[in-house]
């Protein structure tokens, strides 16, 4: 097919408008433009876009810098990696939070309790491990820890320690009032010790 049968391509018209078409092709394009209304019309559209883009990109360093700085901050949120990346980051943060909350941040706390009702309530900070020492209880006694509402939150056995009996509780208690109920003998009412877990 003869080359004269083709209209000019958009790429060539654009390069012509931008004066970047090789010299060897300019004459052909201009000859065609002399006789082709459609290509002249298209040249106007193409050149309007090309010149506007060029002038705007050249003359708006503010836009460029604003856009670039914004883009830098949110670059990781580009569609290709954005959503999986964000999801992974959230999961990681939540995981670290839970692990840290239960295992690393909280301290080990100890508390010495006496079975004197009405006396000052002992308080302890929230801890990942709580050592309770009983000055007047017997070893091997069962001990229940109940919360302020009466619900049992821990059950165990007292063990002998240095001049005392104790319970090592590897459980994190929420802040609030608690009672340690020590059952010394069958049929006997338990001895009750109160303590408070602070935030």
């Amino acid at each position: 097919m003869d080359t004269e049968t083709f209209h000019e391509s958009e790429d060539r018209l654009e390069l012509y408008a931008l004066r970047r078409l090789p010299d060897s092709e300019v004459e052909h394009v201009e000859n065609h433009l002399l006789v082709c209304d459609a290509c002249r019309e298209h040249l106007e559209e193409v050149s309007a876009f090309a010149f506007s883009m060029r002038e705007t990109l050249k003359g708006n360093p503010v836009i460029e810098s604003v856009v670039k700085s914004n883009a830098r901050w949110f670059e990781w949120l580009t569609p290709r990696l954005g959503m999986p990346g964000a999801f992974a980051a959230i999961l990681l943060a939540v995981g670290i939070y839970w692990i840290s909350r239960d295992a690393h941040i909280l301290p080990v706390a100890s508390l010495q309790l006496t079975a004197l009702r009405g006396s000052e309530v002992k308080a302890v900070v929230r801890a990942r491990e709580l050592d309770l020492a009983f000055t007047d209880a017997l070893a091997a006694s069962r001990v229940d820890i109940v919360d302020g509402g009466g619900a049992t939150v821990w059950t165990g056995t007292l063990r002998p320690g240095a001049g005392r009996v104790e319970a090592k509780i590897s459980q994190v208690f929420s802040p609030g009032d608690y009672f340690a109920r020590v059952y010394t003998a069958a049929g006997q009412p338990p001895q009750e010790y109160q303590f408070k877990v602070m935030k």
């Binding site: 049968t5 083709f6 209209h7 391509s9 290509c39 298209h42």
Partner: peptide, 21 residues
């Protein structure tokens, strides 16, 4: 009168067919 075929300039909206003189 030649129909547009391959060149990207040929699917131009509103264009008239290009007459060969």
């Amino acid at each position: 009168i030649v129909q547009a075929e391959e060149d990207s300039g040929l699917d131009r909206p509103g264009q008239e067919q290009y007459k060969i003189r």
